[in-house]
Amino acid sequence: MSAAKPVVVYQYPNCSTCRKALKWLEAEGIAYRSVDIVARPPSKTTLAKVMKLAEVELRKLFNTSGQSYRQGGWKDKLATTSKADALAALAADGKLIKRPLVVGEDVALIGFRADAWAEKLLG
């Protein structure tokens, strides 16, 4: 994967897990472009791509331990919110999104688990 087009890593600079993930990418020699998920959250189109590539349901994109999730009442309203509206909310507030979020041409990863990243990014 390292010779391919760099993956985009949506991360929050103050997040220790995100920093650990970036160090892992560097140690493995994987090319990436870092994007501050709060300053420039991924678009609805990108988030839909992530769902498809990662084969996850919408709720897996949410940072359920975050303040935006709790204050927004997403635990209760996620079940009744349309997919389009939920994706719009995620695209508008990067802190709602579970991070780090990796997006490549044919890969998407949500959160950091070294074993899962190695399987998907190193083959």
Rank of each mutant, 00 (worst) to 15 (best):
M1P: 03
V7W: 02
V7D: 03
N14C: 13
T17N: 11
C18Q: 03
K20P: 08
K23H: 10
K23F: 04
W24L: 01
L25F: 13
A27T: 02
E28D: 09
A31L: 11
A31P: 06
Y32I: 02
S34V: 06
S34R: 07
V35C: 04
V35Q: 04
I37C: 05
V38S: 03
A39G: 06
A39S: 10
P41K: 02
P42E: 06
S43V: 08
T45K: 14
T45P: 06
K49S: 13
V50D: 01
V50L: 06
M51E: 15
M51V: 11
K52D: 15
K52C: 12
A54E: 08
E55V: 12
E55W: 06
E57F: 05
L58S: 12
F62V: 09
T64D: 04
S65L: 13
G66R: 01
Q67N: 15
Q71V: 12
G72V: 09
K75C: 10
K75E: 15
K77W: 07
T81G: 05
T81N: 08
S82K: 08
A84C: 11
D85R: 11
L87T: 04
A91H: 05
A92Q: 13
G94A: 07
K95V: 10
K95G: 14
L96N: 02
K98Y: 03
P100V: 04
P100R: 07
E105Q: 13
E105Y: 01
D106S: 14
D106R: 11
V107K: 04
V107S: 03
A108K: 00
A108H: 00
F112E: 05
F112M: 06
R113E: 15
R113T: 13
W117S: 03
W117Y: 10
W117E: 07
E119Y: 10
G123M: 11
